[in-house]
């Protein structure tokens, strides 16, 4: 009789994306996060800046893209504080905001913030968040 199946790791139950070259052509995005840079791709041919980053430009179909930095600071458009129904592994309260950086919008997790200070128009700064196993995800915190 086969032993009961016990896996230490099941990707289909792992919220954090694969971030390494063998699984992700856009691994540079995560490597840049480790360097403290929030980046996305820009098409070398038509100069379209896309979010999320791409391997092929959705406007001109060029596959020649380069990495560009998004601004370090943006402002809150709307914000919501989540107290219930969070995914497994996420500890409430969680703070999420739609941010605006010039022309670019970004769905963001805010960390290390005083909830009472949150409001539309408040400035935020990029602050990447290391995960338990060394992987990394973008996050933001209030300026000042």
């Amino acid at each position: 009789m086969a032993e009961r199946l016990t896996w230490e790791y099941v990707y289909s139950c792992d919220p954090i994306p694969q971030q390494t070259p063998e699984f992700n052509k856009l691994h540079q995005y995560y490597e840049n996060l480790h360097l403290g840079r929030l980046t996305t791709t820009k098409c070398r041919k038509c100069e379209k800046v896309s979010w999320p980053p791409r391997t092929v430009c959705p406007v001109c179909m060029s596959d020649e893209l380069s990495w560009v930095d998004l601004p370090d600071e943006g402002s809150i458009v709307v914000v919501s504080v989540q107290e219930g129904g969070a995914f497994p592994g996420f500890v409430a309260p969680l703070v999420f905001a739609m941010l605006q950086f010039g022309d670019v919008k970004f769905m963001a997790k805010l960390i290390d913030v005083d909830i009472a200070q949150l409001a539309p128009g408040k400035k935020v700064r990029f602050k990447p968040e290391k995960q338990y196993d060394g992987r990394i995800l973008p996050a933001f915190t209030l300026v000042g």
Partner: peptide
């Protein structure tokens, strides 16, 4: 990959619309 990984769910998206 870019929203769910941060913990963002449908309730949060619609909460943004409400706000």
């Amino acid at each position: 990959e870019y929203e769910g990984a941060l913990g963002i769910t449908a309730p949060v998206q619609f909460a943004f619309a409400a706000q």
